[in-house]
Nucleic acid binder design. Structure first.
Lengths: 262, 262
DNA sequence: AATCCGAATTCACATATGTTGTTTGGGGAA
DNA sequence: TTCCCCAAACAACATATGTGAATTCGGATT
């Protein structure tokens, strides 16, 4: 299935698979069991590496997509939009995430996908290749399915946040979530990581106005719960922040242990 | 794979599959292509029919489940809860929905599932049977995956609603969503259906207080956008309600057409 | 018919968050 | 360096929604 030989009009093709699939595999293995052959099959996947400019849609709602996006560096966000232009981010993707993996099953995409950070590099992976992979190795199919399900779990948690937590709690919760996800992705510690997003974007994620976002962040900072230097986030007292956010990472840490019996 | 013969200690087992799987199959076929054999395999599934009392958890967060639930009649809701008892419903399931299908991939469940209506009957289907089905017929696996993905799309839409729509718009949007889903499930017209939920529960779904829910419903009613008699919902002017809710059913109507090429 | 009980309705008031606009700050470009 | 621009910080005011009651309604039960 791997398009091993270099194809004419696709630069960036690596003969032995694009290296960005290594963190992706790492992520899959946190939740699923894959044998050597299956792992190799994933590592030999390929795709077109693309640099995305800020505010440029990677996919636009209503389109029919034929690829998914593996985040290499930077962050991407999925969001919905009202007619008056208000945005609501429904998912944030960190490096190693295959965003839009769900589009493999529903190629008619309903959500825009954009760069969250100033600089974002992704690898576009053809649905054709992914489907072939899934159909050749059913275990990979289940791993993918499990992964999209875990993403769904995060979204459900966002509904709870936006619906029932006040702004302060919501904010604390988001920082905790991203911290844990960054740590699990091997991109820093949960108490110390980079978050390439401006306050307006955080506000879009949390369903509030930029002004209020600023108020809340300032207040968290004054209470010593958060330290922000540029894009660097530091959490001096994890437990305290987790408490203010009523954060319970259970929904993020679903590991493969309980799945062994399958 | 079908446990065709009656097993000793399981009442309610139907020799040719439980009839409740017919609407479930109908639903799957709206989005996926399944051949005769695969359809038959689903129809010959079995499970334990159970009557759920109101306010009794079907599954509790933190548990390890070994079954999914097919809604036969009534409605079920998934929700998260804060420490102070505040609830946020993240999904509403109508008859024909296999709720908790996602637990097939993530059996460590993070969300409570309860009856929304006073009377709820479900069929508990063993994960063992579902997994066997999925592994025997990969197309069924993809259909299931696609279905959980579509559910995820609904949840994402809820994030947008709760995050960026005001109470009135949110409410209009929810009534439209449920209308379309009921219609697609063959349970009435989108402008005329039964909604067995009290205002407090709707408030839990929309992230507001029961008092405010009541205000909004009253206002929609006064504007002639909504008629409620007991549990019966009537929408006299669909377009007007859809306009107030900025409702676009695209995310619900994902049909199999674009999937033919797969 | 009388009773009852949960749900719906309504009111008065409190407050979190939105809105509008100005000011400050810091990093990149010339 | 100086300028420029976007983001952050801050303030004053507006309003949607929350809070905590009391009252009415309607369907079940007796």
């Amino acid at each position: 299935m791997s398009k091993a030989a270099a194809l004419p009009d696709q630069e960036e093709l690596m003969p032995n698979g694009h290296p960005a699939f290594r963190p992706f595999l790492r992520r899959l293995l946190q939740r699923s069991v894959l044998n050597e052959e299956e792992q190799q099959a994933i590592l030999s996947l390929n795709g077109r590496e693309v640099e995305i400019e800020p505010h440029r849609d990677i996919v636009r709602p209503g389109e029919l997509t034929d690829f998914s996006c593996l985040v290499v560096s930077g962050m991407a966000a999925r969001f919905g939009q009202l007619r008056d232009g208000q945005r609501q981010i429904t998912a944030i993707h960190v490096p190693g995430d295959m965003c839009d993996l769900y589009s493999l099953m529903l190629p008619k995409v309903e959500w825009a996908l954009q760069a969250l950070s100033a600089r974002l590099t992704i690898v576009k992976v053809a649905h054709r290749d992914l489907l072939e992979l899934v159909r050749t190795y059913p275990a990979i199919g289940e791993a993918f399915w499990r992964d999209t399900t875990a993403d769904g779990s995060i979204v459900a948690q966002w509904v709870v946040s936006v619906g029932r937590r006040d702004a302060r709690m919501r904010t604390a919760h988001l920082f905790c979530e991203i911290g844990v996800r960054m740590e699990r992705a091997g991109l820093g510690r949960r108490t110390d990581f980079d978050l390439p997003a401006i306050q307006t974007q955080l506000a879009d994620a949390l369903g509030m106005t930029p002004v209020h976002m600023n108020r809340v962040i300032r207040s968290l900072r004054q209470d010593g719960l958060l330290i922000l230097k540029g894009r660097e986030v530091q959490i001096p007292d994890w437990d305290a922040l987790a408490a203010t956010g009523q954060f319970d990472g259970g929904y993020l840490e679903m590991d493969m242990a309980p799945l062994a019996r399958l």
